[in-house]
Amino acid sequence: MTTNGDEAPASKYVTLISADGFEFVVLREATLISPTIKGMLRSPFAESKTGRCEFPEINADVLDKVVEYFLYWHKNVDKPNVPDMDIPPEICLQLLQAADFLGLDKQSS
């Protein structure tokens, strides 16, 4: 349990909910690569209290890949020559859209 300087003690995990109701419990640190989720978890928003972020535009299969990317990123932040993730071509366009929405389109710094 850490307190991120907010009023409520923030959990180490956040829950991401897809359009079709699937819930993914992810390490909070890993999701912070996305500026969108980072913004949602800031104090004035409801998500910061509940720790539950709903994505009515993203389906479970795509959100699954996004969550995989979060963990992949979290594991490899400081490593050089990281191989690409395995992305099925069927969902690449939806994934493009999700990545754009979540702000995952620039190099992590």
Binding site: V66, Y69, D78, P80, L96, A99, D105, Q107, S108
Partner: peptide, 11 residues
């Protein structure tokens, strides 16, 4: 540059 390529780029 370190770390993985962005999801957008990979997709």
């Amino acid at each position: 540059r370190r770390g993985p390529a962005s999801l957008f780029e990979q997709a």
